[in-house]
Design a protein around this nucleic acid. Sequence first.
DNA 1: TTAAATATCTTGGTACGCCATAATACGATT
DNA 2: AATCGTATTATGGCGTACCAAGATATTTAA
Lengths: 231, 231
Amino acid sequence: MSGDLQGAAIRVERPAKTLRELALDKVREAIVNGYFRPGDRLVERDLCAQLGVSRTIVREVLRHLESEGLVANQQNRGPIVAQLDHDEAKQIYEIRGALEGMAARLCAEKGDPAIADALDKALQDIRDSYRDKDMAGVLTHTSVFYQTLFSMVDRHVAWGVVNLLTVRINHLRSMTIKTENRGVQGPAQMARIVDAIRRGDGPGAYQAAMDHVASASAIAEAVLSGRQSVD
Amino acid sequence: MSGDLQGAAIRVERPAKTLRELALDKVREAIVNGYFRPGDRLVERDLCAQLGVSRTIVREVLRHLESEGLVANQQNRGPIVAQLDHDEAKQIYEIRGALEGMAARLCAEKGDPAIADALDKALQDIRDSYRDKDMAGVLTHTSVFYQTLFSMVDRHVAWGVVNLLTVRINHLRSMTIKTENRGVQGPAQMARIVDAIRRGDGPGAYQAAMDHVASASAIAEAVLSGRQSVD
DNA sequence: TTAAATATCTTGGTACGCCATAATACGATT
DNA sequence: AATCGTATTATGGCGTACCAAGATATTTAA
């Protein structure tokens, strides 16, 4: 990694992160990985203390997360961590299916073998993570897989949408991947996507991507209705 | 529980709008209808003066619009009105196609005649607006048409996504509908969607919706590349 | 025991001030 | 005159303090 292309090589990359962005990431993280549970109140001044920043920042962060759908504001009562109801989760999976299916079809139609190779690599990382029982790794590499799917055909807007929706069902994702057999079935379904792409089979890739999301959705639904009684 | 139902019936709806929401709507409006042009700087203190609110509010609003994609923040230089490039617009149309196609298919599969009736009503409003050369009305009723499409099958999340994306291409929409023949062609294409839904023809509805968006996208592209030279 | 009154908590909103940085203007040096 | 360094200004990033009003908890009075 020495001597890259001229100017770019010596450019000094500043952290460039503002305090607000740092705080935003922290709080989003905290919500996504369950430190704050759905329904928990997010009291501004408490967050100030916990994050060590001013109310100004906290308020901006809360507003941002609100527009992401991770935080809900109740009339005159302040923000809470958004509750994900059953039906909404289903809708999110459905949208993901439509968009990931679209991306898969586009990948297949492009007919660039490098795409399937890149996807295979990501898929192998997923398999490795499953083998090592590294569930955080599974999630990460699954994200990489889908990001590849979208970025290989330059669909960053759609990827943004998928990403936005995905954070809202993150805790469901981490539950579905722990499901019995998911470590075998999941990668197998993803392999079908890659195969269809490699064959240049657009409709097949679309269908395979849809199927994969559909099965994740079904598992999520089962998990959700199972948990209902535990709550 | 008994008293709640009765109470809800006569409950007086408060404006319930916070100052922040009011300001958010104002600024979004201003961007969407072109009062602020793409690339314009949005200086916090100037906005405070123009809106008559404090900087805190303005900052929250800017953050919100940033996450909507209407405002872009430049490193150390502050926010500007986001510029919509060619390719991004195309991607947005593509996503709309996928989601509206999905909604249309679901409507067709549901087989409820009330859906087609409601859509026909919206469509007639669109035709009337075209006849009266009321372009604002065309946009409004087109929105109603699509909202109906989504809400009739309870897909409010997808509708939210479509809505979010649509504001970013709003100025393109207002240009495409002014195009030659769009007043005839547009409603005709939408009628095809409604017909397919009425017939219960899922794939047909999907395809009709896709076609409609695709043609809007093509016009937008033409308009965009045409304007390039005018600018 | 219940109902009214009061205190507390928390958000919505405002005002003001400080610092850091980018851009610009300006002045000095060669 | 061209270049370099410096002062100024505009602006965003961030913090603190304060007030009003709604929601909730707590206490007091009947």
